[in-house]
Design a binder for these strands. Structure first.
Lengths: 246, 246
DNA sequence: GATTGCCGGTAACCCATGTTAAAGCGGTCG
DNA sequence: CGACCGCTTTAACATGGGTTACCGGCAATC
């Protein structure tokens, strides 16, 4: 089970082997590969399929007319870009890769089939999509209220925890394949200030960041610097959520 | 049809009179009323029902430990607070009123019934929920990239257009029952700077704001000051989106 | 092994926005 | 009627973060 989607959904609910097989197969079907800094889908396109990231990092972003860019979300392995977008006529933003990416394009019909025949998977996908909108809200809080240091620390906590869910951390380390310019576009800061802020986090011994490897010597310390409360990731489950109505 | 939800969904798809009746009835069932500045649901609560705002304004917000507060969304008549939240164990934020509010609490079971028997309504609710997450993303863009003037202008455009959808504007006017402190909490600005910014918009003749009434003499001018592109509200439909798979 | 381009790092300066404080201005309630 | 309260407005001052500009390392390319 190296499928990161399954790994993630299992944080929410136990899946039967049949359900896992369905997910495995769906992921194996419409496989695609892209290099660094290519678009998976563009603003204005008509959404046709649901994209599932299998390896590599991508992001959701939007350009303003004068060239400013905001990254609105990072997509990690196991993340789906927008459940149910096909209801909309056209994309209001773009999704692009940050590293080489492998992803699966899941056609609308496949989703509908799964929804009809696998209620527990449906609910787990619901959960995943609620979590990703909760992440979006938390970014609103960061951008609106947190200063540069808290904001960076918060993002790093979030990414670390999300990567851990899909098994992409080792002890207190993970990959962080983002340039400082990309971090800046995500956090609404200038690249210069991202650099200052990272220095400050390093000086405070809250992070070790060398090359593409992030090490967090003391996660609790970083969390408290960020006022990071993981509740919005909804990882605490209580067994089966499924009841007779689903 | 003074039901604002129906009004809104009809921007997406035509509803049959039967479908409208179902929605009317659902809205009439679990009616509740609250005064100004009360909570509809609180962080930590277990979500039990879907709340539909029928009149008045509410907001989604979160407090940080040190008292800072971020308003993450405004809810207007016709807005649903979080389709499908009941999948989650507990709320990661609160929803509170900004004015006296009438809302309907729709129990989970009713939603499931509608979903099973009225695919077109289901799809319209999907659309509404996709639009509200698109709004959340646009706030990320505002907070990350737009300066105070663009940000305020953008918010006012958005609120005006959303109110117009549910028939709550008259020509170029609408109610704006928000204090400057509430605007500040939403836009990540200080109250002082909100005041400065509103003065600036007034001086530029982009808005007339007196008491709780907002007048926009020239919507296009305001939109262009804000770089407001309404595409993210997905109001341009192309007739029936419903096909055989739904 | 020179050239080019990308990325991280720094420094000097500047401005948008925050902070603090205080005054004005209706409403409303006792 | 007077006192209070919530809200807006203004002013003086402080600062976090933006801008511009430059350096150096390093990997890919020829």
């Amino acid at each position: 089970m190296n499928n990161p989607l399954i790994r993630k959904l299992e944080k929410f609910t136990k899946l039967s082997s049949g359900e896992m097989q369905v997910l495995e197969q769906v992921a194996a079907e419409g496989l695609r590969q892209l290099g660094t800094r290519e678009d998976i889908i563009r603003e204005g396109d008509r959404p046709q399929a649901l994209n599932l990231i299998l390896s590599g990092w991508a992001c959701r972003y939007k350009h303003l007319e004068d060239g400013r860019r905001q990254i609105m979300a990072f997509f990690l392995p196991g993340d789906l870009c927008d459940n149910h977008v096909f209801v909309l006529r056209e994309m209001d933003h773009s999704v692009g890769t940050l590293t080489p990416v492998t992803f699966a394009q899941i056609p609308r019909r496949r989703i509908d089939e799964i929804t009809l025949s696998h209620p527990r998977v449906t609910q787990a996908l619901w959960w995943a999509s609620l979590v990703s909108t909760a992440i979006q809200r938390e970014w609103t809080v960061s951008l609106g209220q947190r200063d540069a240091l808290e904001r960076m620390a918060h993002l790093l906590c979030e990414l670390f925890v999300r990567l851990r869910v899909v098994g992409l951390t080792e002890e207190n380390r993970c990959e962080l394949p983002l340039t400082q310019a990309e971090l800046a576009d995500a956090m609404g800061l200038s690249t210069v200030h991202v650099n200052r802020t990272l220095q400050e986090l390093r000086a405070a011994k809250l992070i070790i960041l060398k090359g593409r490897t992030l090490t967090i010597p003391d996660l609790e310390a970083l969390q408290s610097a960020a006022q990071f409360n993981p509740n919005y990731l909804h990882l605490e489950h209580e067994g089966q959520h499924l009841d007779a109505n689903d």
